[in-house]
Design a protein around this nucleic acid. Sequence first.
DNA 1: TCTGGGGTCCTAGGACCC
DNA 2: TCTGGGGTCCTAGGACCC
Length: 399
Amino acid sequence: MRECTTSAPATPRRRIAHLDMDAFFASVELLRYPELRGLPVVIGGRGQTPERLPDGSLRCLRLRDYVGRGVLTTSTYEARQYGVFSAMGIMRAAQLAPDAVLLPTDPPVYREYSQRFKAAVARVADQIEDRGIDEIYIDLTRHPDPDDARLAQRLKDAVRAATGLSCSIAIAPNKLLAKIGSELDKPDGLTLLTMADVPTRIWPLAVNKINGIGPKATLTLQQLDIHTIGQLAHADPAQLQAAFGLSYASWLTQVSQGRDERPVTRVSAPKSVSRETTFASDLHVVRDRAQLSQILVDLCEQVAGDLQRKHCKGRTIGVKLRFEDFRTVTRDHTLSCATDAPQDILHAARLCLKRIAMTRRIRLLGVRVGKLDGDAKEDIGPTTRRPDTPTAATTGLLF
DNA sequence: TCTGGGGTCCTAGGACCC
DNA sequence: TCTGGGGTCCTAGGACCC
């Protein structure tokens, strides 16, 4: 008998791309300072902008000359050979690569390049999920060009033409594999993966290559003598469940087989807006009160400005405090109506701070507004009538 | 020489209501 | 009066990601 061909048309094979810019911040800086190309360059901290000398040469800070706090956000591939990577403390990086050039971060410029590469991709394929400043997922399932390799190359060419920058792309049956795949051939990579590749190309990789398995889960898995994704795929489900609970354990089993059904989602409204700052040196609640107070006011004004720019208001105001021993505490306070006014945020933030025992010096202060109501809701209620009106008793007590 | 700043999502307990 | 659930909201902390 012939095979039955009358069944419903199969859903089209999913084709999901993950596109990741190569050493994004550092690569943007190299466009500005091409003479640094080939040198170990790292981005991070609050160092100084390079200075162009009269003879045209560039004077910039070396890692060994940096004093202060902060971490690296990016390093060039040359710098990575010294073992310095993003999220590493700058002082630690200075030990490993003292001669590396250190540039301060310049977020507005990176945002500009981010918009450029995303717009270039959108002209080729418009089913895009934003995953931050330097990466996106693209659903190519219904794209007219059926040739994955040709399509991936087209996307890379479009990004380079728009920005002068290289990126790495993988096309796979789902987001999980596309994300892993885009790292396999970095930089300037092009990777195609199918489910048949899972045992040979995915299983040998370390478990933390999976998006969602972080340092804690990796450590727990190590204690179970599970190091690779393949070992995870063959692990005893009961053992995983005992270590992680049912929900996370079954997710682990799924992803270790390369299975992932998450859709590519194109729009997402922000859920919260926050600003925080780590001080150059720890501040004392009493002795440095004036300074802390000013920082709090500034943070509230910045958050309010962010909200107004995004045309949204929020009901839950939160503060975050990090003490000198790195212990972090948060408190929040929900208002009866949403606000974007700095004085409302400041008042609620002070209420939150009153509930924290100030036992040590403070390293970081942050302000967050959540429970955002999206935009367009024009002041329905009287925002002048607030539930918590500042009184002499509640203002000025803390910060 | 420790450890930035912007987010999301999950869990878990308690309050409160039906 | 006691017992019990379910549902929702609020709060705090933590893991994780870029």
